[in-house]
């Protein structure tokens, strides 16, 4: 292995769509290793910063269990409560649904959870690695089918730079920050830049090489849903 191409400057230039940054990584002697390093650093680094924000947010709000108790007690003061309380089965059913909802909903609505955030220290780098490899390989396949000239290492190296928008997740050290879906769009734009640099295709062909992997994802999930539906139908039909 030769020189290290990756630098903070190069990462920032890739984030802000500087084509030279992608070309520089493409021309590295081992773009795959550079990409691998970048993906792990982004995943772990942003997860660590996010953990700080989650801890601060968690310390800023009352305990979820205390909030749950307040609402439960308030329900007991409602006129309809006596109707439910009169039937033990209905009360048990209500309580079960209530407990289940409180296990799922707080996380779903973004309640701060240091436990989940700590788990992200492992989950985010692993998810980023899988996403990088699966997308990179599919995009490479489509780019080659469309006449692209890049090697697989070059595709993976440059598409790793398309993960730089996820650096903004590092702003998660600010408690209560919500970033939303903009990073996905930004990442898509960077992926286009990466594939254009790695394969030197026309804009139209690069566009198709960028979006066709998502068509594969869609087909895959439709297949999974169809199979799942068939299995459930078979079980219910017995």
């Amino acid at each position: 292995m030769g020189n290290r191409t990756l630098s903070i400057g190069l990462i920032l230039r890739a984030l802000f769509l500087d084509g030279d940054a992608y070309d520089q990584l493409r021309d590295d002697d081992n773009p795959f290793v550079e990409g691998l390093f970048l993906i792990v650093i982004i995943g772990a680094g942003t997860a660590l910063l996010h953990l700080v924000g989650q801890l601060l947010a968690w310390a800023s709000i009352p305990q979820i269990s205390a909030i749950k108790d307040v609402i439960w007690n308030a329900y007991q003061r409602m006129p309809w409560w006596t109707e439910i309380a009169r039937i033990p089965e209905a009360l048990t059913q209500f309580q079960q649904t209530w407990d289940l909802a409180w296990r799922i909903l707080p996380t779903l609505f973004g309640a701060p959870s240091p436990g989940n955030a700590a788990w992200n220290l492992v989950a985010w780098p692993v998810a980023a690695l899988l996403s990088w490899l699966i997308y990179g390989l599919l995009a490479h396949l489509f780019a080659r089918l469309l006449g692209g000239a890049g090697g697989v290492g070059q595709t993976l190296g440059t598409t790793a730079l398309a993960f730089t928008p996820l650096l903004l997740r590092g702003l998660g050290f600010i408690p209560f920050l919500t970033i939303g879906g903009v990073l996905g769009t930004w990442q898509l734009i960077c992926r286009y830049k990466a594939l254009r640099s790695a394969h030197g295709l026309s804009w139209g062909r690069t566009f198709w090489a960028t979006v066709l992997p998502f068509a594969v994802y869609l087909l895959f999930w439709l297949l999974v849903a169809g199979l799942g539906g068939a299995v459930i139908t078979a079980i219910v039909g017995r």
């Binding site: 601060l56 947010a57 310390a59 600010i174 209560f176 919500t178």
Partner: peptide, 25 residues
């Protein structure tokens, strides 16, 4: 209900978080 951080600190943090979220909306 009680919080670990003092209420004013929590309120400021929440306001700042909401403010920094504006560009990402």
């Amino acid at each position: 209900l009680p919080t670990i951080l003092p209420r004013p600190v929590s309120a400021i943090l929440e306001a700042i978080g909401k403010w920094f979220s504006t560009p990402f909306g």
